Simulated scan of single mutants.
Amino acid sequence: MLSDVPLDLPVRPVLPALLRALRAAGDAVLVAPPGTGKTTLAPLAVADEVAGRVLIAQPRRVAARAAARRMAGLLGEPVGERIGYAVRGERRVGRATRVEVVTTGLLLRRLHRDPELPGVGAVLLDECHERQLDADLALAFAVEARGTLRPDLWLLAMSATPQTDRFAALLGAAGRPAPVVRAEAALHPVTRVWAPPPRPVAAPGAGRVDPALLDHVAATVRRALRERDGDVLVFLPGAGEIAAVAGRLADLRDRIALLPLHGRLPGAAQDAALQPTDRRRVVLATAVAESSLTVPGVRVVVDAGLSRVARTDLARGLGALVTVPVSRAAATQRAGRAGREAPGAVYRCWS
């Protein structure tokens, strides 16, 4: 399958070393920065080596569909033939499918239902550095299944961060760590522009985001459109804030395509945000666009500096979504979206 793809991406030179490691040990860790092609080329290379189907797990539905479309496009065929995907409520696979992209939650359910994974030759866990509960459980179940039921099953963890010691130790067997293969790639330069609000805004916590901050984000988007070329990707904490900022930019709709991208949208609407259009685009997204997928045409990122995460109130024993300042690592990931295809810029709405 890989021989059918002429595209030369930074991960391609290390794929022979990765396959040698998998043949020798049956497990490995692939470290590759965003934009190197690990999500699209590594599964095709593994599929050439195993007899069964290759399952590649993505943390989000939109990323699973996008990865399947990308691989199928590289092979020049529609999704559902050699490349398929399965997410909650939707599955496109066929008898000839060799690579199936699934969400980590779906992989976890399959491992719970039948840990032997009949017909599967390899399991690839993408973006495992995000350390989500589903991904951690799926990795642990896959390691246990390989150790007790399927010693022939290949396991590959793929990460964009260099801190891989724990993953290598977990995947390895008989006291030896799994081999680590690294792909190097230099992203295009991204210029940082500090754009804090003119006055301090209240910390949101469990409450709503200060409307003054949303006004400032909309103004920063307008500034970025004036000062830079290319499409603009805007990071906001949730769907409510996306709708609010879209309303503040409504007067631009006659010349700019305003596209939301978050987990509550139907699949078709999510996919539309990843497709080029004949107009300049402003994509208003939550953290789903931080990793796992490329939004084509983006040269500018506007980062509100907030993220919505699940937290547990131990006093009440209840969970809640809380808006918190974005971590440094996540801010770096967001900024990198502007440098995937060409030099870009990130406007950070904090000081």
Rank of each mutant, 00 (worst) to 15 (best):
M1Q: 06
M1V: 15
V5F: 06
L9R: 11
L9A: 12
P10F: 07
R12C: 10
R12P: 04
V14W: 07
L19P: 00
A21F: 06
V29S: 02
G37S: 10
T39C: 01
T40H: 06
L41S: 01
G52F: 04
R53Q: 11
P59W: 00
A64M: 07
R65N: 05
R88Q: 12
R88W: 04
V93L: 14
A96R: 13
E100K: 00
V102D: 05
V102F: 03
V102K: 02
T103A: 09
P118M: 05
E127L: 13
R131G: 05
A135V: 02
A145E: 09
G147P: 01
G147S: 11
L153D: 02
L153C: 09
L155G: 09
A157N: 03
A157Q: 04
R166G: 15
A173H: 14
A174S: 11
R176L: 15
V180I: 14
E184T: 07
A186L: 11
A186M: 08
V190I: 11
T191G: 05
P196I: 10
R199S: 13
L213S: 08
L214C: 04
H216Y: 05
V217F: 13
R223Q: 14
R223T: 15
A224M: 08
E227C: 01
G230F: 09
P237F: 07
G238Q: 00
E241H: 13
A250Y: 10
D251L: 15
L252E: 08
I256S: 06
L259S: 04
P260T: 10
D271M: 06
D271K: 01
D271F: 04
A272I: 03
A285V: 13
T286V: 13
L293S: 11
V298S: 14
V301M: 09
V309L: 12
R311E: 15
L318K: 04
G319K: 00
V322F: 04
T323F: 00
P325G: 06
G336Q: 12
R337I: 00
R348L: 11
